[in-house]
Write a protein that binds this DNA or RNA. Structure first.
Lengths: 220, 220, 220, 220
DNA sequence: AATGAATGAGTTTTCATTCAT
DNA sequence: TATGAATGAAAACTCATTCAT
């Protein structure tokens, strides 16, 4: 029932072993949460023995911390590839919304890791030294887009880039994070097409909100 | 170590014991998640012995299912008290947004229970027979508000009430659900005032989105 | 191979279970030392399950601490039964020496517990609140004997009772504590008879040492 | 590590590694006992890798056996340097007592190794082929001292040198071996000065005991 | 001669659950 | 109705030992 694929052995290659453990941990913690995750299962998924995990990370919490960090690193890598500078402001927003929705859906461990960490009241992320820097890049990019948009007259000015980012994330996060309860409670068909419509609606909503006061609606 | 307050004993009152266990379970599961929750701790919080919990509920999963159901019941009770019919359409929207944001923040167990259940891929809610009905009331109310708004010319027509509800929930859910990571990663001061500004912005955004095509912005 | 006797079960009697665990722990720690002792083995010896041990004591160290305390309690009980007041001073000394030698030999856990605790640099006994009082009774009794002896002119005065006790213990302790190495290195027949000759010699030595300056030897 | 030397023969390196391991093992086993000692820690202390230890010694027990033997070798070396033949009999006794007390205190691994081995019921020393010879030298020297003393009329005759040695060891061993528990239980200030007073008293006691029947006390 | 990489077989500890009253 | 006593099964973690170079 649990996704144990023995994984081919990578013999005597410390760095490869480390990375295998990290990815296995990310998946296991994301699927089961901090307390539901099993070191045994991580070892199985990574194709290594349990003691090796302790050799490399020390204890379960440290493995968890490394997995949490990895979740952030992975989304940051995706965000950094976005070339927002090269796009028209409205297009940049649409692009980021689309990326977020996609990433949340295709790398499901990101959302569940965040939920798990928030359930634990952020006790681990607080200790990750570089957690702050980890997303500052994106905020700076967003600030630039907002400025350009204001200068070009397509956005109103004075929008806080962090607030904008949180709105984007909110609209993309909830439908994915809560897809199982939504399916049961509202009967939503929580599939790819539905998610894309969500992202579409989110872009609409955000661009309306960013539009300058006197502007009439342009919409799609 | 966790917030165990022994609670005064309720002697020989089956219904009271049941309710004490239920509330204790709701808090424990909401604080620690399904796997982190401890039957011992629930017994302690409820001021009863462990075997009593098994007598009443059968096993840990059944206690969890009852707690999950209780979370929905509690929010539905709040929503039913909202007199959306008596308000102007825009006011009704604002009111629901405010209520959602407030409820998420003041009854923190709702969000964490949903996250926990979604981490478990909805395996429990699927079996709750009445889960579907549980929120249909609200959707019907929202549909009525939307119709009234369209009739009065303040909303565009053709808006799906479920989609609207999900958007409302999204904007209110994420900032509360992720408050610990947001604080660390973005340095947000995740307090009451900040949440109210989030709700304010959410209302703005939603009303703009609901506005009919030709309408100019009203804003506050 | 290890001295596991399943022991008859004492069902549903908390105090009896506690005592069974304590005695089993005393024997196991005394035989194997702190790190060699096994909780599994203690459970087996006591005829209870492992979790019960954790219920009652908390963890291995706490079990060890309780066992160490018990070792002292047991020897104190023996010492308290000695009626030194009723004996002539020299007889009291002989009696205490004999008791010590006997106790060391017949309750072998006392010596090995002390050795174990000293190997651990007294890290546990330091935290036992009542460790100090535990032997003060005996020292007071010895002081009385010394005073009586001095008054009667059979002992010199000014002997420190603690120093005397340590000398007694030294002479009785070493031959028992080191019986295995002594047997191999010196070929001593470390049996009951040999131990009694040791105690005899110890008494001689101590009484000579206690004798007042002018006294001529009485000997046996 | 040592840079400017004409390449040393490999055998010398091997021998140095062996000795480093042996001393590291002696210290580790003496500090933690057989079961508390860690091969990892021995490797660390010795500055070599774990597999090297297995190459040289085979397994943990063999390392332990070698360390135990080394403890005896070291004390024998000290005892052999004592020139008991050149001293007056009483002086020889005092000298040996002083040496024992000093050695026990300054080479603390001797006592803890003996205690550890006795905890293990001598299972290792029994297999050391040369354990017996290891201290016979000292016993022969002591026998000679006793004979000289008897001939000179300062000792009574018929004293068993082994019994004498055990008495000496007893009085010097216990206060050092049990210094941690003694400190807590009796409040003894177990420092250098205190130990010297113990040795002093031990010499007194032993010489009184060795004195011939008619002799009056000399004392200091 | 020497070591970094890896693990099998335990050991302590935890926890949902049942027994007996 | 209620609970103190007890445990089987499993989890995190450890450690002597071997592998491969």
């Amino acid at each position: 029932m649990s996704g144990a694929r023995p994984a081919e052995p990578r013999r005597r290659d410390a760095e490869a072993s480390r990375r295998a453990i990290l990815q296995a941990a990310l998946e296991e913690f994301a699927e089961k949460g901090h307390d539901g995750a099993r070191i045994d299962e991580i070892a199985l998924r990574a194709g290594v023995s349990k003691p090796l995990i302790y050799d490399y990370f020390g204890n379960k919490n440290a493995v968890y911390a490394a997995a949490l960090r990895e979740a952030y690193v992975q989304i940051r890598e995706g965000e950094e590839e976005l070339e927002l500078d090269a796009m028209a402001p409205a297009e940049a927003i649409r692009s980021l919304v689309r990326f977020s929705a996609l990433h949340f859906q295709e790398k499901p461990w990101f959302i569940t890791m965040l939920n798990t960490e928030n359930l634990r009241r952020g006790s681990t992320i607080t200790d990750l030294k570089d957690a702050g820097e980890i997303q500052s890049v994106l905020v700076r990019k967003l600030a630039a887009v907002l400025e350009r948009g204001a200068a070009e007259g397509v956005f109103r000015s004075g929008v806080d880039p962090v607030e904008l980012y949180i709105s984007i994330a909110s609209l993309c996060y909830f439908p994915v994070s809560n897809r199982f309860t939504l399916r049961v409670v509202f009967g939503c068909p929580v599939d790819r097409a539905w998610m894309e419509r969500c992202a579409e609606a989110a872009s609409e909503m955000l661009l309306l909100w960013l539009a300058p006061p006197q502007n009439t609606r342009k919409s799609r």
